[in-house]
Measured scan of single mutants.
Amino acid sequence: MKVIFLQDVKGKGKKGEIKNVPDGYARNFLFKKGLAVEATPANLKELE
C-alpha cells in the first residue's frame, strides 16, 4: 500500500515521503498512530 508519511518514522520514511509499505503495517500501526495516510489522489493533491 502506498502511504504518505506525516511524521518521520525511524527506518521506514521521513515526513512528506511517499512509499510502499505492507498493508497490515499501514493499517495497524501507521494509520492508527497518525504517522501516515493512504496515498489517494485527494491526499496527494493536498501534499502539493
Rank of each mutant, 00 (worst) to 15 (best):
N20F: 15
K32S: 09
K45R: 14
E48M: 14
K33H: 15
K14N: 09
V3A: 01
A42F: 09
A39M: 07
K10Y: 14
E38I: 08
G24Y: 14
T40I: 06
G16V: 00
I4Y: 10
L30W: 03
K32H: 08
E46K: 14
A42V: 10
L35Y: 12
Q7L: 11
K32P: 15
G13D: 01
V21Q: 04
K45P: 06
Y25T: 04
G24T: 14
K10V: 11
G24P: 10
R27Y: 10
G11S: 06
D23K: 14
L6M: 08
F5I: 01
L47F: 14
G16Q: 02
A36F: 01
K45N: 10
K45F: 11
L30P: 01
Y25D: 04
G34H: 11
K2Y: 15
K10P: 15
N20L: 15
L44T: 07
K33V: 08
R27I: 13
G16K: 02
L6I: 10
A26S: 04
L30T: 00
N28F: 13
N43R: 10
A36Q: 00
L6G: 02
E17Q: 11
K32V: 13
N28A: 10
D8L: 05
K14D: 05
L44D: 04
V37I: 14
E48K: 09
L6F: 03
G24N: 13
A42I: 10
F29T: 07
F5E: 00
F31Y: 05
P41T: 11
K14F: 13
Y25K: 04
L35M: 07
G24F: 14
G13M: 03
A36K: 00
V21P: 00
V3M: 02
F5Q: 00
A42Q: 12
Q7I: 11
V37F: 04
V3E: 00
T40W: 04
T40G: 05
V21F: 09
E48S: 13
K10F: 14
F5M: 04
D8W: 09
R27L: 12
I18M: 06
N43E: 07
I4P: 00
G16I: 00
A36S: 02
E46G: 12
K2F: 15
K32A: 13
M1Y: 07
K19M: 11
K45T: 09
G24W: 15
A36R: 00
L47D: 06
A36E: 01
L35R: 02
K10W: 14
L44F: 06
I4Q: 03
Q7N: 08
N20V: 15
Y25W: 11
K12F: 15
K2R: 15
G11V: 01
P22M: 08
A42G: 12
K33S: 10
E38V: 08
A36H: 00
K15F: 06
V9T: 03
I4G: 01
K19D: 03
K14Q: 10
P22H: 09
G34S: 08
V21A: 03
K12I: 15
E46P: 07
P22I: 07
K45D: 09
V37T: 07
K45S: 10
N20T: 15
A39K: 02
A39H: 06
D23Y: 15
E17F: 03
K32L: 13
V3H: 00
L6E: 01
V21L: 06
K15N: 03
G34N: 09
F5Y: 07
V9A: 02
E48W: 10
A42P: 07
G24K: 11
T40S: 10
A39G: 04
F31N: 01
P22Q: 08
T40F: 06
N28K: 12
E38W: 07
N28M: 12
V21N: 00
L35F: 10
P41H: 10
K2Q: 12
K10G: 08
A36P: 01
K45E: 12
K19R: 12
L47Y: 15
G13F: 13
F5G: 00
E17W: 04
